[in-house]
Every structure is written in structure tokens, then in C-alpha cells.
């Protein structure tokens, strides 16, 4: 797609704008759908109906919500640090959006096909922490500060299991380029790295337990990374009121919200790319192609988004020390074992 556009328009800023636009469109549409899904899924789990009046089963409710958020008064506390307070939500959004640049949506489209794709996403998604810290600090509210400190500690802790889990997949494929990683897994469901990748049978069976573990841990750490229950301590509403975004309202709050939802898809998408074949079809040649690719990656990503929603409305929340314990004393040691064994199997 990049080449096609380049030949049509030539090297200009319009080209880059066009290349950058699809993820943004996707994020906005996806957020609308997910807000609705989350409400509906939670409602049906809780024996109620949720939105029923705006359109068929309330499908127009997210639109109404956005209109409401747009019209809301945008308050800034008098004691807040104004520039930081205003900047924070955008920084969070930028961190998330920059991550989408390296997420391959199909064999034909990726925002930026960089060789260090995996590394880039890990690096860039950490920008969000700065935004959260800024939000917490600038609000000049002790609860917000608590939330910000918690989220910084949490995201730093869970970056490590995520990086290590991704490393397992990278070791098997031997590339950090996400398109290469996906091409490596093409040819059906059994070639997915979560099932050992396209290796000879014996090696595949040996790899299987470790890849499954790594994938499982990646998902857990991903949930923690996006601050969703049971890891939603930074905004734990029953403890910290609303954490770092307590003082935000209107559009700024909406941007935090949007970033959270988009992040949910980002971690799901990365997990899908590295372990579940990304845009490649689970049936080999059947239903494959650039457009089917979009369908597959959205489906895979959305499945895990649904899983995150499901978990959120089922589980209670961990405590700070238990959260740290989970990361440093459970997930990371397991991943070290995985890494070591995968390396050993690949060498043999």
C-alpha cells in the first residue's frame, strides 16, 4: 500500500498523512464498538440489559456518550499545574497511537514497516507512563498522585514480562520485524507460534508447553499493562476515587478513556501477531489475502479484548504488593525458564 500510494502521490506530507490515518479511523470506530460491547457484556453478566432506548439495543448510545463528553465543561482545578495537566492526556494518547504505527493490519498495510517493530512497540508504549505520571502530579490531588505512582510502578514492572514473553516468539522466528514474524507463521493454525511454530514435529512438541506459557503470561501482563481489573489499581475507583484521572472531565477524560480502550486492542493485537499468526488465516490458503488479513487480525485482537472485558467484570482487584509479587516473583521467573528452554530446544 505504501508503494502504491507513493507512486500515486509522490513523496509528500499527504502520503504520510494518508498512511497514518487508517489506525486513527480504526481506533475511533473500535472505541465506539467496544464501549457498547463492554456495557452490554457486563450488563448481561450482571443480569440486566444496559442501553435499550438509543437505537436497536442501544447501539447509538456510544455516539450519544461522545456528544455528551464533547459538550461537557472542561474544568481545570485552580491549583493544578496547567500546562502539564493539559498535556498529559495527549501524551498518553500519543504513546498509544505511536504503538499502532507498527501494528500490521494486513499483509499490504502497516503504518511503518520497521525492522525493529517489536522493540519499537515496547519502547513507545512506555511513553504513556509519563503521561499518567504527569496527570497525577499536575492534578495536585493526593489521590491522583497515588494513582500515578501506582501506575508507574505497575507499568514498569509489567513491561519486563511483556518484553520477555515477546522474546520467546522472537527467538523462534528470528526477526523483530512484525511482518516477517507473521509471514513465518503463515500456512494455517498449526504454524502459529503458540502451537510451536512451523518447526519439525518433535521440536514443535517440545516447544509447545513453553510457547503456551509465554503466551499466557503475555496476556496477563498485557492486562496489567493497560490497567484493567484485576490490575486496575491506578484508577481503583473504590480506593483512589478515580486515580490519575480524578480531576479530568469532558474531552480530556474522553481521551484517557479512548487511550485505555485502544491500548486494550494494541496489546491484544501484538499478542495475536507474535503468537497467533497476526493477519494470516488459520485455514492456510483459504480466506487469506490482504482484506481477509484485516478481518483476521481484528477478529483475533477483538477476541482478546472481549476476554479482557470478561475478566474485568468477574474478578476482584489485587493489592499493590500482591501485584508486584505477581510480576517479579511469579511471571518473570517462569519466563526465564521458558526463554532458557526455548533457546535450548532451538539450538538442539
Amino acid at each position: 500500500m505504501e508503494e502504491l500510494l507513493r507512486s500515486l502521490i509522490g513523496e509528500s506530507w499527504i502520503l504520510y498523512l494518508l498512511l497514518a490515518a487508517p489506525p486513527l479511523v480504526f481506533i475511533l470506530l473500535y472505541a465506539l464498538v467496544t464501549v457498547w460491547t463492554e456495557m452490554k457484556v457486563s450488563a448481561h453478566m450482571q443480569d440486566r440489559l444496559a442501553y435499550m432506548y438509543t437505537g436497536f439495543h442501544g447501539v447509538l448510545q456510544p455516539v450519544a456518550d461522545i456528544l455528551k463528553l464533547l459538550q461537557k465543561e472542561d474544568t481545570i482545578p485552580t491549583a493544578a499545574d496547567r500546562p502539564l495537566f493539559v498535556m498529559a492526556p495527549f501524551l498518553v494518547f500519543i504513546g498509544m497511537y505511536a504503538g499502532f504505527a507498527a501494528l500490521p493490519f494486513s499483509s499490504a498495510y502497516i503504518g511503518s514497516n520497521i525492522n525493529l517493530g517489536v522493540f519499537y512497540i515496547i519502547a513507545v508504549s512506555s511513553i504513556g507512563v509519563v503521561g499518567l505520571l504527569m496527570a497525577g502530579w499536575a492534578s495536585n490531588n493526593k489521590w491522583s498522585l497515588f494513582g500515578a505512582m501506582r501506575s508507574a510502578a505497575q507499568i514498569i514492572s509489567y513491561e519486563i514480562p511483556i518484553a520477555l514473553a515477546l522474546l520467546v516468539a522472537v527467538m523462534i522466528t528470528g526477526s523483530l520485524n512484525l511482518q516477517d514474524v507473521i509471514r513465518y507463521q503463515e500456512g494455517g493454525i498449526l504454524n502459529w507460534i503458540v502451537f510451536g511454530g512451523p518447526q519439525p514435529l518433535v521440536q514443535k512438541l517440545l516447544l509447545l508447553p513453553f510457547t503456551v506459557t509465554a503466551f499466557f503470561i503475555l496476556f496477563i501482563a498485557g492486562v496489567a499493562e493497560v490497567n484493567r481489573t484485576p490490575f486496575d489499581l491506578p484508577e481503583a475507583e473504590s480506593e483512589l476515587v478515580q486515580g490519575y484521572n480524578t480531576e479530568y472531565s469532558g474531552m480530556k477524560f474522553a481521551i484517557f478513556y479512548l487511550a485505555e480502550y485502544a491500548n486494550m486492542f494494541l496489546v491484544s493485537g501484538i499478542a495475536a501477531c507474535l503468537f497467533l499468526g497476526g493477519w494470516s488465516s488459520p485455514f492456510g490458503e483459504l480466506m487469506s489475502g490482504p482484506l481477509w488479513g484485516v478481518f483476521w487480525i481484528v477478529l483475533k485482537g477483538y477476541f482478546f479484548v472481549f476476554l479482557q472485558i470478561w475478566i474485568r467484570w468477574t474478578l476482584p482487584r489485587l493489592r499493590v504488593d500482591q501485584l508486584m509479587y505477581t510480576s517479579w516473583k511469579v511471571l518473570i521467573p517462569f519466563l526465564f525458564v521458558c526463554l532458557f528452554c526455548v533457546g535450548l530446544i532451538l539450538v538442539l
Binding site: M45, Q46, D47, R48, T314, L315, P316, R317
Partner: peptide
């Protein structure tokens, strides 16, 4: 209490 612990769903079952 469930809400305090971050679990929302049992709360609504109780209210039902």
C-alpha cells in the same frame, strides 16, 4: 463489599 474489592458483578446479583 464486592465493589470495594473491585468486583462489580456480585453487587448487582445481590441487588437483584
Amino acid at each position: 463489599y464486592a465493589i470495594d474489592m473491585g468486583a462489580f458483578t456480585p453487587f448487582l446479583w445481590c441487588f437483584r
